[in-house]
Design a protein around this nucleic acid. Structure first.
Length: 168
DNA sequence: GCGTCGATGGCA
DNA sequence: GCCATCGACGCG
C-alpha cells in the first residue's frame, strides 16, 4: 500500500534557489469510490479529476476556507485512490509540519501544485530513502466521522517514534 | 489539560 | 450546508 510505503519517504520542495526537505511520518489512505471518506466517492468532478489519473501525481485541494491539503494519487490509473500527507519532520530547517494544513502551509503547497508529477525532480517531488526499515503503526483516520463504517478502517499510517505526528 | 467554537470559501 | 483543520478561548 502506497500510504505505508510513504512513511519515511522524503518530500523535496524547491522554491527558487531554496530547497526544503521533510521526512513523511503520517499518512492516510483513501482507497477509492467505495470508500465513503474519499472525495472520489462523490464521483469524478473537476476537483477530483486528478485522483483518477496516474499514481504519483499531486492532488491538492482547498478546505475550510483556508487550508490546502497535499495528497498523492495511488493505485491503478482510474481507481480514484489517494494518500493524504498528514505530517512530516523538517530536515535541516525549523518548522511545525504536524498536521496536513500546517504541512502544506509551511511548504508553500497550494492548488497551484495540483496535478504535478511527484516522481520526477522539480519544484516538488518525492525521494525514496536509500535503506532502512522502520516500525509502522496503523490507526483510524482523523476527521471523517461521517463516513459510516469506513470510519473504523485502519487506514492511517504513522511512524510511532516521531514527535511530529498530528496526534499520537 | 481538556472540550468547544469561529474563521472562511469552494463545492455539490 | 458541509468540510480529510487550526488556534483561541474558557474552564476552575
Amino acid at each position: 500500500m502506497l500510504a505505508e510505503r510513504l512513511i519515511g519517504t522524503f518530500l523535496v520542495r524547491r522554491i527558487g534557489d531554496r530547497q526544503r526537505l521533510a521526512r513523511i511520518v503520517e499518512t492516510e489512505a483513501y482507497v477509492g469510490p467505495e470508500d465513503l471518506a474519499s472525495h472520489s466517492s462523490r464521483g469524478r468532478t473537476k476537483r477530483t479529476e486528478v485522483m483518477f489519473g496516474p499514481a504519483g501525481h499531486a492532488y491538492v485541494y482547498f478546505i475550510y476556507g483556508m487550508y490546502d491539503m497535499l495528497n498523492i494519487v495511488a493505485g491503478k490509473t482510474g481507481s480514484g485512490q489517494a494518500v493524504l500527507i498528514r505530517a512530516a519532520e523538517p530536515i535541516g530547517w525549523e518548522a511545525d509540519l504536524s498536521g496536513p494544513g500546517k504541512l502544506a502551509r509551511e511548504l508553500r503547497i497550494t492548488r497551484a501544485q495540483n496535478g504535478l508529477d511527484l516522481t520526477t525532480s522539480g519544484e516538488l517531488f518525492l525521494r525514496v530513502p536509500s535503506a532502512g526499515t522502520i516500525k509502522i503503526v496503523r490507526s483510524k483516520r482523523i476527521g471523517i466521522d461521517y463516513a459510516e463504517h469506513w470510519k473504523h478502517a485502519l487506514l492511517r499510517f504513522t511512524d510511532p517514534a516521531s514527535k511530529a505526528l498530528s496526534r499520537p
